[in-house]
Structure formats: C-alpha cells, structure tokens
Computed example of a mutant assay.
Amino acid sequence: MTSQNFYWASNLKFLRNRKKISQESMAEKLGIARSKLAMQETGAVKNLSLEDLIKFSEYFKISIDTLLKVDLAKLGELRLRELEAGNDVYISGGRIRVLSISVDKNNKENVEFVPVKAKAGYLAGYNDPTYIGKLPKLSLPHLPENKTFRMFPTEGDSMLPIPENCLVITEYVTDWTGLKKTPCIVIMRNEQTFLFKMVSSQIDTNRTMLLHSLNPAYEDKEVFAGDIAEIWKYHSHITDVIPSSETLIEELLRTVNEIKVDVKSLKDV
C-alpha cells in the first residue's frame, strides 16, 4: 500500500508528539528500530505492511482508516479527546460521543450512583448503555434540569475539609478547556480509581490537566488530557460526618504553635 496520498506519516509524528514521547522510547514500546519509526514519520516508507498498520493502530488505539485518511492535526481538541477515548472519528463520521444515561418512566434523567465495588466495572463500561442502565439510580431534589448528574464515592483526604468517604454529586463536563481550579471527579483510563481534585485546564499550552488538592500535604499532579476518560464537576456532597468548627487554617496554626512549644521545651533542656 502506498502512503503517498495518505496522512499516515504526519499522523504518527503528531500523535507521538501529543503523547510527549521520544522516537527512541516509542520505538522501544513498539519493539521496532528507531530508524524504522523515523522513516515512517518522514514518509520514507512507501509500502506499508499489514503488520505495521496493525501495530501502530493498536498502540494509539485508533483505527487504521483514521490513521490513513484523517488529518488529525486539523481536528479540534475536543474531537481529539473523543478519538482517544475510543470514539473513532472515521467510523462514526466525526461525531462526538453521546454520554450514556438512563431515564425514569417520565423520561427524566436519573442520577446514577457508582458504588466503590463498581469502580473497576465503570472504567470498562462508562460508555456502555447496558452497563449504565444497571447502576443504582437516584432521584434527588433541586438539581438543575437539562443537565446530567452522577454520584461517586470519594476516598482519601486530599480534598479536606470535604471529608473522605463521602458521596459527591457531580455534573458531566463536555468542554474541559474552561475548567479553572474547579472541583471535579476525574475518571482516568488506566487507573481503577476516581480522583477528586481541583482541576485546571492546560490543554491550550501542553494538552494536560493540572490536578490540585485542597489538602496541602498532597502535591499537584499533571496528567495528559488523552489519559482522562471523563470529568464530572462537583455540585454538592453527602456525608454523615459532622464538620468541625475548626477550619483547616486554624488546625494548621494550632499544629505550628504546638511545634513551637515543643522546640522551646527542647531548648530549655
């Protein structure tokens, strides 16, 4: 197959750069020589083998048709993220993925609840209507209409003073570019967990999302936007923990004062 009239070479280079990975590192992951990858990216290979077509398609999780026939560099960020989510623009005609939801007998959207034990299954079936239809369903008052909500459990203390092990009610986010220090549940593709973080988009600069914790004990984390499956914006939360009257700042100041007293006592010894 001749690659002369296709986008194969430019797409390989574009996707590799998008992943922020070197030719040497990518060639190692694919089990090929770096020189062969370089020739693929420059279009020096005029006859593409079936083995190469399949190998690169499986690595990027993008269909061969798309790699050959769609100029990926001209797609918008939202469509690229949908493509990376497994929603192939060539096969689907470039349509954005429709979020799988369930409705009640009055055709009103349910609020699906994703329990802790369903986390692993959700990562595999979040865009499967059959799977979503089997999740527990809730009807919660005072939620805005014409929006999609879902409830997730939280783990850990990275978002104190919001307590751990609470239930977070969230709204589905279609456009991630406007997020700026927005509390969100982030669904990562390759992690069997839900991250509850303050999210800021860095898509326009380096195609990443910055995840920040309210708890200063946790460091910020940058993740590649293509590694994220879904983002759900915080709306409210449910907890059985009675909040302390002491704020986080007050707690920190109290701890610092206790340390000062301990240090002083050591000096006096």
Rank of each mutant, 00 (worst) to 15 (best):
T193E: 15
D227N: 12
I242N: 08
E251D: 11
N146C: 06
R207C: 12
P216C: 08
V256T: 08
E246C: 10
F196A: 04
P136N: 02
H142D: 15
W232P: 07
H212G: 02
K137W: 05
N190R: 12
D204T: 14
N257K: 15
T208C: 15
S200L: 05
C184D: 03
T255H: 13
R254D: 13
A217L: 13
S213G: 07
I132C: 06
E258K: 15
E155P: 01
L179S: 06
I238M: 11
E258Q: 15
E219C: 05
N165E: 11
P243M: 01
R254G: 09
F196G: 00
I238P: 01
T239L: 00
M151I: 10
H212Q: 15
P243L: 01
E250A: 13
M159E: 00
N165G: 03
I228F: 08
L195Q: 12
T205C: 10
F224E: 14
H142K: 15
I238F: 09
P183M: 07
S139F: 09
L195S: 11
A225G: 09
N190T: 10
G226M: 03
S213L: 08
P144V: 04
E171V: 09
T208W: 03
T208G: 11
V223D: 00
D227K: 05
N257Q: 15
K134T: 14
E251T: 12
V256Q: 12
T148W: 04
S213T: 07
M209K: 06
E164T: 09
N215T: 02
T208M: 14
F196E: 00
I231H: 00
G156K: 04
T154K: 01
L138T: 01
Q202R: 15
V199D: 02
Y218V: 05
F224N: 14
P216T: 09
V186Y: 05
C184I: 04
K233V: 03
H212C: 10
E250P: 01
G156H: 01
D240W: 07
S244R: 03
W232L: 08
L211Q: 08
T154Q: 00
L179V: 06
P153G: 01
H235I: 12
K181S: 12
L138I: 02
R150F: 00
P136I: 04
R207V: 11
D204I: 13
T247W: 00
H142S: 14
L167I: 07
E164P: 12
N165H: 11
S213H: 08
E222P: 01
I228D: 07
V168P: 04
F152Q: 05
G178F: 13
P163C: 03
L143G: 07
D204K: 15
S245R: 12
N206F: 06
S245Y: 08
F149C: 02
T174Q: 14
T148H: 10
L135I: 05
E222L: 14
S200Y: 05
I203K: 08
I249F: 12
A217Y: 08
S245H: 11
T170W: 03
